Structures are given as C-alpha cells and as structure tokens.
Amino acid sequence: MATYAIGDLQGCFKELQQLLNTIQFNPAQDKLWLVGDLVNRGPDSLATLRWVKEMGDSVIAVLGNHDLSLLVVAGGFAPPHRNDTIQDILEAPDREELLHWLRHQRLLHVENNFAMVHAGLLPQWSIEQAQTLAHEVESALRSEHHLEFVGQMYGNKPIKWKDSHKGIDRLRIITNAMTRMRFCTPKGEMDFDYKGKPDNPPEGYLPWFQIPDRASADTTIICGHWSALGLRLEKNFMALDSGCLWGGELSAVRLEDRQVFQIPCQGLPGSKRWK
C-alpha cells in the first residue's frame, strides 16, 4: 500500500490518467491525496470531478479556490470568469449530485504528521487550531443553509486573523487562508495581489511557509495553489503545483519515501511554463 499526493489537476484529466499509470495506482490498495483545484481552466473538468467522486474512499481531496468558485457560480452569485471551463459541469445531468459531493469535501486533512491544505496556514495557527477552524467552514458548506455562506464567500477582508472574528468574517478569512494565501506578514496579514515567485515578495511580506516560528512547523504541510513556486520539497513542506495547466508537469509524491513521479503536460494553447 502506498499514499500518493498529487498537485493541482484543474481539469487535466488526461494527464491525471497518465500519471496514475506511471505510479501503477491500485485503488484497492493505494491512496491518493489531491491538494485541491480539481476543476477549472483545464479541458476536462467534468470528467475529472466524476472520476474523483467515483473513487470513493481511495481518494482524499481538499477544496481549492477554483472548486469553491464553481460553487459560487453554480449558486448564481457570480458569473463565470472569461477563462473558466466549468460550463460542462453546470450543464451536466448529474450537476447537483456532483456539487453536493464537492460541498462535502474537506478544507484540511491531517494524518501521520502530514497536513494537506490547498494554499496554506496562517502562522498563528497550530495544526489543532487549524483543524477546528477548517471544520467550521466545512460545516457551513455542508449545511442546508450553505448558500448563505457561499453567497458571501468572495472578498479579501478581513486580511488579518483575530480569534474574536465571528460570522461571515471568520468563515471568509479561514477560507481565504486555506485556499488563496501565498504571502503574509509575520503577524498573519495576507496579500492577495501578488502571485509571482517567492523570491520577490511585497515589502514586509514573506511566503507563508517561511514565516519564522509558525505554529504548524512541526508538521509537514502538503499544498498546491502556487504554480510559480513549482515543485518544492522541504523537511516540513511540500508544494506540488508544478504548473500542469501551464505546460509544466503533473507531480505526485509517494509519502512513504518522498519519491517524486512526474509527467509532462501540454498545457493550454499558447501557455508558457513558469520560469
């Protein structure tokens, strides 16, 4: 039995199947951990979402910002972006079943000293606190009143965590940190504008995983989201978005021994891999 963590799929279903053949994935024995952004921008979001759902307990997926964006658009709270490729899901006969399944996925998964989240964790959050906070958002998404949250999910404020946050402000900042964050200050103030490489951060900011003395540093964080960061494996950090959508690679890491498996991706027409 092996556990493989795989970077952002974003509807790149063909590449996913090629990678699964490479690692000889056996759903009866092995486990897949998917770091979120299952859908959008790639060519086969519907096929990807259906396949992950059908895999049942052999796959653990956390929610990414593109997955949540699908819920916002499906709820009628925002139009699709110009480059979105989710219309096949919105028009599918099993649309409601797929959206219901997606709403019931996790924001954070913790197991065997690994913690998987799409984007990151604020420096003040221990793993235990992050689990509690993730459950708050998961409960809101799974509720029969979930549209009340989904309709107010978008927004950049508040940008700094306080334990006293309540209501939609509290849910939004948890969601933004775990699905959108790249840079923050040592005090946990997030920046959502700059999406480039980590060696040229906005003044006063650092990549979230480089904040000194962050409370989650004793656990290996597995994430995606940041294609400009690329594949990056450190003692307590694994970034797996190696830019498949942009003509990079789709990457898998076997957690038992950290062996890396990759396949080249064609990427979108006219796309260039991050350099």
Rank of each mutant, 00 (worst) to 15 (best):
A2M: 12
A5E: 03
I6Y: 01
G7N: 06
D8M: 01
Q10A: 03
G11D: 08
F13G: 08
E15D: 01
Q17T: 05
Q17L: 12
Q18S: 10
Q18E: 11
L19A: 09
L19I: 00
L20S: 07
L20M: 10
L20F: 06
L20G: 15
I23E: 07
I23A: 04
N26Q: 10
W33D: 09
V35M: 13
L38I: 02
P43K: 01
L46D: 02
T48S: 05
L49D: 01
L49Q: 00
K53D: 01
K53N: 01
I60F: 04
A61G: 08
D67P: 10
S69M: 12
F77I: 05
A78N: 10
N83M: 01
D84V: 05
D84K: 09
T85N: 11
I86E: 04
I86S: 03
L90A: 02
L90K: 13
A92T: 03
D94S: 09
R95Y: 06
E97V: 10
H100E: 07
H100N: 02
L102N: 08
R103T: 04
H104V: 08
Q105N: 03
N113L: 11
F114C: 07
A119Q: 04
A119F: 09
L122M: 14
P123M: 15
Q124D: 12
Q129C: 00
Q131L: 14
T132I: 11
L133H: 14
L133N: 15
A134W: 10
E136I: 07
R142G: 13
H145Y: 11
L147N: 04
E148Q: 10
P158G: 15
K162H: 06
S164G: 07
K166W: 04
G167S: 04
L171R: 13
I174L: 08
T175K: 12
A177K: 13
M178K: 03
R182Q: 15
F183H: 06
F183E: 09
P186C: 05
P186T: 15
G188A: 08
G188V: 06
F192M: 13
D199V: 02
N200C: 15
G204S: 05
G204A: 14
Y205C: 12
Y205E: 04
Q210L: 08
Q210M: 13
P212E: 14
S216A: 13
D218E: 14
D218N: 14
W226F: 02
S227Q: 02
L229H: 07
L233K: 09
N236C: 00
N236D: 06
M238Y: 11
G243F: 00
C244K: 01
L245D: 00
S251Y: 00
Q259M: 08
Q259S: 14
I263K: 12
G267V: 00
G267E: 03
G270R: 09
R273P: 02
R273Q: 11
